[in-house]
Design a protein around this nucleic acid. Structure first.
Length: 471
DNA sequence: ATATGCGGGAGAG
DNA sequence: CTCTCCCGCATAT
């Protein structure tokens, strides 16, 4: 049943016979009808970082995509992945975020704005009507997926935990703390004890941590998973497990650091929590379409492996419309296609220099607006989506996961390619511009540098300047 | 501290 | 008028 309705229609289909499963990563010109009971829909959730946009229509909630925050140098993370942080939704928080340095290479972070809808950010519209929540997306994301919301939250909470535990430990040993803080491994150790996320092995790893680029051995780090629970359902648990295996190893890799960073908190380091996220898969699961599944991986890990390899191609291929049915590309499908391709083919690193191709498509106006519709305003009750999101029925994804995972591991180079995208500075959003962070800009960055530096140093060779970091 | 929503208002077309 | 974007405000986590 092709969706024949438009979010702006005065009358939307009544009593839809079938509700769509929640899609965390809708992309393309998609129209979906969720049950008003669907918690994620009630919360207008999306894996993409969407911010509220005032469309002066209280019946229809409009949100536009903020894009994704990446390392300006598009450095490769140890796993080969690229950093893909979720832009903070709050303007203020986003600005801060952009001032931080890449936790991996310490260079600046940059916000890749979304221009997937004729040069404008992809927009999502939500409208409650009776027992249904109508969702319509316009545009095709022309950038990699950021962390999913749940991932980002988990990361943050993990950091908090780390922080707090750190502090606790500090209290215990007030004297040493200062000195040991950054450099003293022992302190790390102590802290670690408190971190729920770490287990003995991990700690060891840290301490020893000579190599953290090496994938961890086999441990089931599922435990971690528990800690940070992802709201997403249980259904996916299986997936998680599966997926987690592959990933876990990596996570640990990162874990150490995070834990060690007591404050730092930079972004992804914290990724320690990642393991958690593997469940992100779940989300994909949520999506009905295969692509999403793939996507999940990426998104899943910002840091991890696989996330990368997909992004690039993923996007290129993006089936916005092709998507399982949900999309109705109908109307606007054409233009985006070309745009995307051009875009992604480019190289990430070079984004700036890159040609404006992406922009190419003139801003044609697509009907984006929401007309006023007589409708009752609705305010979905705030619900938690701690329950399961959806029915995850795609166990099949396991396979995918597995594949990807493994692939991810060595995908470093490849990723780069895939991942590459070109962006012209032209479209850069103001927000990002002004604040363009300089590497040395924040102390935090230093910190990162320090810690990371040791391990990652090889990559960028810029390790040195961290030394001074004081914090 | 952030995420979310709301709504005024500016500015471009 | 239509739309996007910016801004502040308020509320909920």
């Amino acid at each position: 049943m092709k969706q024949t309705w438009d979010i702006n229609d005065p009358k939307l289909p009544q009593e839809p016979k079938h509700f769509d499963a929640f899609q965390e990563w809708p992309d393309g010109y998609v129209r979906l009808i969720y049950s008003s009971e669907e918690k994620n829909a009630q919360r207008h959730l999306s894996g993409w970082a969407m911010r509220n946009t005032n469309n002066h229509n209280c019946q229809i909630l409009k949100k536009s995509c903020l894009g994704v925050v990446v390392c300006a140098r598009s450095c490769a993370l140890p796993g080969g992945a690229r950093l893909q942080l979720r832009p903070a939704i709050c303007d203020k928080a986003r600005q801060k975020q952009q001032k931080k340095a890449c936790p991996n290479c310490n260079s600046a972070l940059e916000l890749i704005p979304c221009r997937g809808h004729s040069g404008y950010p992809v927009t999502n519209f939500w409208r409650l009507d009776g027992k249904a929540i109508f969702f319509q997306a316009k545009g095709v994301h022309d950038h990699p997926r950021p962390e999913s919301k749940s991932e980002a939250e988990a990361r943050r909470s993990a950091i908090k935990k780390q922080m707090s535990s750190y502090h606790h430990s500090q209290k215990k040993r007030p004297l040493n703390s200062e000195a040991g803080r950054y450099h003293d491994s022992s302190s790390y150790t102590n802290n670690l004890q408190n971190f729920p996320c770490m287990d003995g092995q991990e700690r060891v790893g840290i301490i020893t941590d000579s190599n953290f680029s090496i994938p961890a051995q086999s441990y089931p780090s599922l435990q971690n998973t528990d800690l940070y629970k992802v709201p997403y359902d249980s259904a996916s648990s299986q997936e998680d497990q599966l997926s987690s295996y592959p990933k876990c190893p990596n996570p640990r890799i990162y874990m150490p650091r995070p834990c060690s960073y007591e404050f730092g908190v930079p972004t992804f380091i914290s990724s320690s929590p990642y393991p958690t996220f593997y469940k992100d898969l779940t989300s994909p699961a949520t999506d009905a379409d295969p692509l999403s599944l793939n996507g999940s991986h990426y998104s899943t890990v910002t840091t991890h492996d696989k996330s990368f390899d997909n992004p690039g191609r993923h996007y290129g291929l993006k089936p916005a419309w092709g998507k399982t049915g949900s999309g109705d590309q109908g109307d606007y499908g054409q233009m985006q296609t070309s745009a995307n391709h051009a875009y992604y083919s480019g190289d990430y690193p070079c984004r700036y220099s890159a040609s404006p191709a992406p922009i190419a498509p003139p801003l044609q106006t697509v009907i984006t607006t929401t007309t006023k519709v007589s409708y009752q305003a609705y305010k979905p009750p705030a619900l938690k989506y701690s329950d399961n999101l959806c029915d995850v029925k795609n166990l099949q994804s396991y396979t995918h996961v597995a594949e990807n995972v493994s692939g991810a591991i060595y995908s470093g180079m490849k990723i780069q390619e895939d991942f590459g995208m070109v962006k012209s500075a032209l479209l850069y959003q103001h927000d990002s511009i002004p604040t363009k962070p300089k590497p040395a800009e924040s102390m935090e960055s230093y910190r990162y540098g320090l810690l990371l530096g040791n391990s990652y140093a090889e990559h960028e060779g810029q390790t040195l300047w961290f030394e001074t970091a004081e914090y």
